[in-house]
């Protein structure tokens, strides 16, 4: 076991069962996983193996059917919706396959969005969002709306949004899935840089080349970890 202080997230024996009518779909069947500070993890596995489900639980978007999940030694798997919303806002950043930006907001406002739910003043929100959006190389695009941006640019806005609240872990579910390989490579460069700067990244991918960027690869099959 590693030193306790280095472990940010600890999942113990996580199970997740979906009920489709009377049919149980066991998406996760006992997954245990530690995420340490500055980890760079890729989660791989065939379609339907439970990768997204795992990431949802790790990022507190969902709660496990059974098992325990600790965040910095605090048990959060039994938290209420309201508490989980706070946890997400405070601890995590998200990047999804489809870029998931709000279409009516500018790139800048999209980036600033998580800060609204932290009651940060408008002035500070904008200042912080500008700084981050500059960091992902989109300073000249910040007033554009998502439909005026390319897929790669949208994904960089999404990364900026994931970073704006200084998250402890950044989760990405197939972040390059909708991008061509060149743009995908650009995105991966950003991830690499983020990890170099001391961030913790967990990403789901199907692409061996993308997974090769990570320092640690977790392989899932049928809701179980088969290789870590």
């Amino acid at each position: 076991m590693k030193k306790k202080t280095d472990v940010i997230c600890r999942a113990v024996d996580i199970e997740k069962t979906y009920w489709l009518g009377k049919v149980a779909v066991e998406a996760l069947r006992g997954v245990s996983l530690d995420i340490e500070r500055n980890d760079y993890i890729s989660i791989m596995g065939p379609s339907g193996s439970g990768k997204s489900t795992l990431v949802h639980i790790l990022s507190c978007l969902d709660t496990p059917t059974s098992g325990k999940y600790y965040l910095e030694n605090t048990l959060v798997s039994k938290y209420s919706d309201e508490e989980l919303a706070k946890v997400r806002n405070k601890f995590f950043g998200f990047i999804f396959q489809s870029f998931s930006l709000l279409p009516r907001l500018s790139a800048l406002d999209n980036v600033a969005l998580p800060l609204i739910y932290r009651n940060v003043s408008k002035h500070e929100r904008i200042a912080k969002a500008k700084e981050i959006i500059d960091n992902v190389g989109l300073a000249d695009r910040m007033h554009h709306r998502p439909n005026e941006l390319s897929g790669g640019e949208c994904q960089r806005v999404a990364i900026a949004r994931a970073l704006v609240n200084d998250p402890k872990v950044i989760y990405a579910d197939e972040p390059t899935g909708n991008l061509d390989s060149k743009t995908g490579a650009e995105i991966m460069e950003i991830f690499d840089r983020l990890v170099d700067e001391g961030n913790t990244v967990v990403m789901v991918t199907h692409d061996m080349n993308v997974a090769a960027h990570a320092r640690r690869t977790v392989k899932l099959a049928d809701g179980r970890i088969i290789n870590d």
């Binding site: 978007l61 919303a85 997400r88 998931s100 709000l102 739910y117 949004r161």
Partner: peptide, 15 residues
């Protein structure tokens, strides 16, 4: 979808 995104980045039910 907007609601999903907002919730993902920390909007509570009350928000």
């Amino acid at each position: 979808r907007e609601i999903g995104i907002r919730k993902a980045v920390g909007a509570s039910n009350n928000n």
